Simulated assay, not measured.
Amino acid sequence: MIFVRRDPKLIPEKVLRVAERAQAELEALPAEQRAAFIEKKKRIWRAFARYLSKMSYGKCWYSESDCVHSFMDVDHYRPKKQAKRSDTDSDDGYPWLAFSWDNFRLSAQRANQINHDDATDETVGKGAWFPLMQGSRRATWDDRCIEDERPVLLDPAKLADVRLIEVTATGRMGPTRFCLGEYERTRVHDTVRLLGLDLPGLVSARQGAMRLVQEIVELVVQNKTAAELSAAASAFVSLHLRADSQLDMLQRLTKPDRPFASAARAQLKLMGYEDLCLRLEQGQEAA
């Protein structure tokens, strides 16, 4: 999962106005007509896909995959028509957020849609799932207290949430040191499970990014060792095996526009080269 800094300036005014008009129409409808109206207007949130994509360099906000050979969905973080809280509990969800772009997240279809993975024999995908922690307030059409809710699913639009999850040494997702209690660890575990963030293909892609980082670092270290053998060796390495180009390559792998940049950063941290990760003060997002 990556943090995405949402930028309304990337969205044309016309697209925003269409969503606002639909929202005004929805507010005037009786309860029994809302779901049909929302379904009829799905083109409205789909129109936001290209602008959400610009905010994340084309990557899924949940999995960090660029999914170049499949469509991306515009996911409603809080489900628009039905919210499934558990295997036995569901409600009408958050219809008043159906056209709110603050509720939109760009998602790979495997994270957003319910699907069965043959490799793991698991059913994964967010679908209508939106569980709340036990004891949490639950927002409704008449009491829209979403700020008082305690969602289980981590939100890629909240930096505090993204700080709870990271790529581990195995390429799987796990809790960070900022998970200080059972509530945070539960959120990480259930987010990974419900969104399929540890499906074999994703784990393999992260491992590939991590192997590339490891190989480049090992090459830099080998060249440094060779340069220390003699003055002649040092001159050869400086001329033909320039470390700065290899270090630049490592930094590029941590840029937010690279798929699985978080895996590259994780590997650098594991190897003790965290200082090579591109820093936010260098003008980059936290993706």
Rank of each mutant, 00 (worst) to 15 (best):
R6G: 01
L10G: 05
I11K: 01
I11W: 00
V18Q: 13
E32T: 06
E32I: 05
A35Y: 05
A36Y: 02
E39R: 14
R43E: 12
I44K: 03
R46G: 11
A47E: 10
F48A: 12
K59Q: 06
K59T: 04
W61K: 01
H69A: 03
H69V: 00
F71D: 14
F71V: 11
M72F: 11
V74M: 05
D75E: 12
H76E: 03
A83S: 14
A83W: 09
K84V: 15
S90G: 04
D91K: 02
P95N: 09
F104C: 05
L106D: 04
I114G: 03
D118R: 02
T120A: 00
D121C: 09
E122N: 09
T123P: 02
T123C: 10
W129N: 13
W129T: 11
P131S: 08
P131K: 09
L132Y: 09
Q134R: 07
E147S: 15
L153K: 14
L164I: 01
I165C: 06
G171R: 04
M173V: 00
F178C: 02
E182H: 13
E182Q: 13
R185C: 08
T186C: 02
V188R: 01
V192P: 04
R193H: 15
L195F: 06
L199H: 00
V203L: 01
M210P: 03
L212T: 10
Q214V: 00
Q214P: 00
E218K: 02
L219K: 12
V221A: 12
V221T: 11
E228C: 11
E228S: 14
A232E: 15
A232F: 05
A233H: 15
A233R: 11
F236Q: 07
L241T: 00
D244K: 08
T254E: 07
K255A: 13
K255M: 13
R258W: 00
S262G: 08
Q267C: 01
L270E: 13
L278K: 14
R279S: 15
E281S: 15
Q282G: 03
G283A: 07
Q284S: 10
Q284T: 13
E285T: 11
A286D: 05
